[in-house]
Computed example of a mutant assay.
Amino acid sequence: MIPEGTRYFLPPEARLRREMEEGLFRLLFAWGYEPVELPALEFYDPSHPLAERAFKLVDKTGEVLALRAEFTTAVAGLLRSNGGPPTNRPLRLQYAGTLWLREAAAELGRSREFRQVGAELVGVSSPQADAEVLELAWECLKQVGFPEARIEVGLPALVRDLLEATGLPEDKKERLRQAIHRKNTPELSALLEAYGVHPEPGRTLLALPDLYGGREVLEEARRLPLSSKAQADLDWLEAVLNLLPEVPLLLDLGRARLLGFYTGLNFQAYTPDFGLPLLGGGRYDGALLPYAAGFALGLERVMEALRLPTSENPPQALALDRALARKLRQEGLRVELAWTSDLGELRAYAQQRGIRWLALEGRLEELTPA
């Protein structure tokens, strides 16, 4: 028995997960993202965004620690501990590792231990930087086997600036935000009327849940009465889109999650026939770092969506001849070593496993499939 929310990974899943992670490492490195490694143990911080769901521990000094619950905060801590983040120049970092949550969100299923690969572009804030992060996210999706995936892009900054234009207190703006994000138009309409929101900003807010689709959604939004800040938000988004004509993006201008964290665009990627996001990210200037954007991909989520085969790929050869085994491995083959000199037992084992060759006395003997 193992704790609820954890699981074993057996062959071939463990191997495929490792290969997937290594492929993502090479891709991110080719884009200039250097790897960092972060401690699994952190000082417990009540202000951490996931503090209430983190696993807490107490060390021998009485210091309260926590298992790492997410990476963005950990990367920000790394930079603050090493001279601070750069200003006016890009720093590209990648990471991979395990996260733990005492109580997982519904979209994580029952997982309380899960692994992510991610990237952060720190130190600059521009449409070019946002376009880089989105394009890199798309390349990661293709790398792990989802060329058909679509990235849904929201603009929480737009929702925030439209809500600010109402002049309402924070608690009322929060209720409006939640209704917008849930796309609950009847509730949103009732709240706007109850709060006495002016018709022009009210009409714009009421339109947000339906602003979903292709790049034409941007033009629909521009026809609405908008504040100068909201116009600037759309100008930024349009500049990003103009840099990414080949990336399959869907716009969701009613996406309004975590307004206190995301300060620019926010995105998640989905694939047909799988209802949970494969990756997510966005821009969070000023929330943890002066300028930063990034994303993370969940390996368990990706593997579940891929519906990977459960049968193991056997080695190509079983070797009594160790020198020949070394030569075959140098040529790229997988080779197991024999544990006995009984040829009958070895042939039976190889046939049962689906191993094609027996390497002995400097030669390869092809085996008949069982």
Score class of each variant (00 low, 15 high):
65 L>V: 04
30 A>P: 06
26 R>T: 06
77 G>E: 15
67 L>D: 09
20 M>I: 00
62 G>R: 02
80 R>Y: 14
11 P>E: 08
27 L>Q: 02
28 L>F: 13
73 T>G: 13
69 A>C: 08
81 S>R: 15
50 L>I: 01
79 L>Q: 06
56 K>A: 01
78 L>T: 00
71 F>P: 01
61 T>F: 12
88 N>R: 15
69 A>E: 04
12 P>I: 10
22 E>K: 14
14 A>S: 11
9 F>L: 14
86 P>C: 06
87 T>K: 08
67 L>Q: 08
72 T>L: 01
21 E>D: 07
44 Y>R: 10
31 W>R: 11
69 A>I: 04
51 A>C: 04
53 R>P: 00
26 R>N: 03
18 R>I: 08
24 L>G: 03
62 G>C: 04
64 V>Y: 00
89 R>V: 14
16 L>P: 02
17 R>W: 04
67 L>S: 08
65 L>K: 09
50 L>D: 07
81 S>N: 13
68 R>G: 07
12 P>K: 06
68 R>S: 00
36 V>W: 09
25 F>M: 05
55 F>A: 11
29 F>E: 13
60 K>E: 15
77 G>T: 06
32 G>N: 08
47 S>C: 02
32 G>Y: 12
17 R>S: 08
79 L>G: 02
53 R>L: 00
37 E>P: 04
76 A>L: 00
22 E>Q: 13
15 R>W: 07
72 T>V: 06
39 P>T: 11
90 P>T: 13
54 A>S: 15
66 A>N: 03
90 P>F: 13
30 A>Q: 11
22 E>F: 12
85 P>G: 05
87 T>Q: 14
87 T>N: 01
31 W>E: 09
38 L>H: 08
84 G>E: 06
63 E>K: 15
54 A>R: 12
76 A>M: 06
24 L>P: 09
86 P>A: 01
45 D>S: 13
65 L>W: 05
34 E>Y: 09
90 P>N: 15
82 N>G: 03
71 F>L: 07
33 Y>G: 01
70 E>I: 01
58 V>I: 13
64 V>C: 05
55 F>I: 14
86 P>E: 10
27 L>E: 09
22 E>D: 13
31 W>N: 03
36 V>C: 07
37 E>M: 09
67 L>K: 07
42 E>F: 14
31 W>T: 02
64 V>W: 01
25 F>S: 04
50 L>F: 03
79 L>P: 06
35 P>A: 07
36 V>Q: 08
33 Y>T: 02
46 P>H: 05
65 L>F: 05
69 A>L: 01
26 R>G: 03
86 P>F: 05
54 A>W: 03
34 E>L: 14
82 N>Y: 00
31 W>A: 10
36 V>E: 09
9 F>W: 12
60 K>I: 07
89 R>A: 12
27 L>W: 03
66 A>D: 00
74 A>D: 00
26 R>L: 12
89 R>L: 13
85 P>S: 08
13 E>M: 10
83 G>L: 06
28 L>Y: 14
77 G>Q: 15
54 A>I: 09
20 M>L: 12
66 A>K: 05
24 L>A: 01
9 F>V: 06
35 P>S: 09
84 G>S: 10
67 L>R: 10
64 V>F: 00
16 L>V: 11
56 K>G: 02
42 E>Q: 15
58 V>F: 10
52 E>W: 09
